[in-house]
Design a protein around this nucleic acid. Structure first.
Length: 421
RNA sequence: GCGGGGAUCGCCUAGCUUGGUAGGGCGUGGGAUUGCUAAUCCCAUGUCAGCAAUGACUCGUGGGUUCAAAUCCCUCUCCCCGCGCCA
């Protein structure tokens, strides 16, 4: 949700944003319904004022022992008019909020403009791409050979895009989680293990309606949705709260499984564990003062980069273009890790500044002093690690000539000092 | 799952029986006054509309009754106590 003031006073900014994102949106409808809405508010307020006055008169007369029947009939009329006006207002209010909830976020001026990923900008590269003097394999072949995943039985039991992790890969997955949590705890993030299912209201705070169908699983007959990431649960954590300014920024490290329908991904990454319906993820989530959010954004990116440097995984940082970016984000960096088996960089981290967009939906405000006006704060989120993708990268990048997998130095202590799988 | 109690402003609370302008305290900020280890008093402190003056809304949610609902009736959600079931 955007600041209604911008829509009212400076619609050109919104028009530019919609064009840059190549998004089809009924802005005129939004502006019109907003106008109509304001007019109706003024009308109903006036009528209510009258009604309140009459109610007061009635109670006065009754106190004085007089008969209020003459006022009663007038009151009845006004109540009737008001009910009509209120239902009219409700309709307009629904139209307005439906549009207001689907309009995408504003775009940071540093974001490259373009229709798709071809307009993305590479910011930097880190690490040396491994050079192999033997024939290499992808993560599917290697993990089959070492008995580390069972995709066939997962397909039998749950369907495509599910997996059984097995043996040392289970331990490696847990090591990544353990190391990731220790890493963020040292940086003074509060560790959070959130609910894995949340209600509709909370989910709508974090994502836009179209995403429901594409990514979110719903629990039948319950007002519950499986989180697609702990971001959803952490964003809603402070909904409808007024946070004390001195507690900001709030930096959270969320650990949870993530559940995704992947409905729009038919045929892409069909094999293996790169794109799956369920994976573990540690997520950074920050609630910040508006003036600090750009700075916090860069910090989160730096934290994730440091993590991959420690894991010795070559990566590059990409600044997403307007056409490739999520609608909730104003600026997104992706980190793409080298995957030797595919001979390319693939997305592992997405790091976004959502400005006050989510905060407005979720009504998360702050103030420094209790007599001050409340202000919407800014929310930011970044992957630290989505484990399955890093497992792919580790398996492929660290494969050895004799068909094993070298375990990155920093993870060895979490695997009983084992050096190889 | 059953029985009982509850949800009021950032926090604590009064009001509900008997319908008629939601009051007080704490905290925080501003101001005033007096100056013996500090005290007292006043104002402000949710949301929306409005340039403003103002006005409207807000008592967990959604309905209903009524001229009028925090208050009466119904639905749902959540919390607490007891019982039951349970990894």
């Amino acid at each position: 949700m955007l600041d209604p003031k911008i829509i009212k006073e400076n619609p050109q900014i919104i028009r530019d944003m919609l064009k840059a994102r190549s998004v089809d949106f009924d802005l005129d409808g939004l502006i019109k319904s907003d106008q109509k809405r304001r007019e109706l508010i003024i009308k109903t307020d006036e009528l209510r004022k009258k009604k309140n006055q009459l109610a007061l008169d009635i109670s006065q007369k009754k106190k004085m022992g007089e008969n209020p029947s003459s006022i009663l009939s007038e009151m009845k009329n006004i109540s009737g008019d008001l009910t009509k006006l209120e239902s009219e207002q409700q309709i307009i209010e629904n139209t307005y909020s439906k549009l207001a909830l689907t309009i995408p976020n504003l775009i940071d001026e540093t974001v490259p403009i373009g229709i798709d990923q071809n307009a993305n900008k590479e910011i930097r590269k880190w690490g040396t791409i491994p050079n192999f003097d033997f024939k290499i394999y992808d993560h599917i072949d290697i993990s089959k050979d070492l008995d580390l995943v069972d995709l066939e039985r997962a397909a039998k039991v749950a369907g495509a895009r599910f997996y059984y992790l097995k043996n040392d890969l289970v331990r490696l997955n847990q090591s990544l989680i353990h190391y990731g949590l220790e890493f963020l705890a040292k940086k003074e993030y509060s560790l959070i293990q959130p609910p894995y299912m949340i209600n509709r209201e909370s989910m709508e705070g974090a994502i836009i309606a179209d995403d429901f169908e594409e990514v979110i699983y719903k629990i039948d007959e319950e007002d519950l949705y499986m989180i697609g990431t702990s971001e959803h649960a952490m964003a809603a954590m402070h909904s409808k709260e007024i946070i004390d300014g001195k507690d900001l920024p709030l930096r959270y490290a969320g650990i949870s499984p993530c559940f995704r329908k992947e409905a729009g991904a038919h045929g892409r990454d069909q094999k293996g564990i790169f794109r799956v319906h369920q994976f573990d993820k540690i997520e950074q989530f920050v609630f910040s003062r508006p003036e600090d959010s750009r700075n916090e954004h860069e910090k989160m990116l730096a934290v994730s980069e440091e993590f991959y440097q420690n894991l010795e995984i070559p990566y590059r940082v990409i600044l997403l273009s307007t056409g490739d970016m999520g609608k909730v984000s104003s600026k997104t960096y992706d980190i793409e890790a080298w995957m030797a088996g595919q001979n390319t960089y693939r997305e592992i981290v997405s790091c976004s500044n959502c400005l006050d967009y989510q905060a407005r939906r979720l009504k998360i405000r702050y103030r420094d002093k209790t007599n001050e006006d409340t202000q919407y704060l800014h929310t930011l989120n970044s992957t630290l690690i989505a484990t399955t993708r890093i497992l792919v990268s580790i398996i492929e990048n660290f494969q050895t000539k004799d068909g094993h997998i070298r375990i990155p130095q920093v993870l060895q202590r979490y695997m009983g000092n084992q050096k190889e799988i």
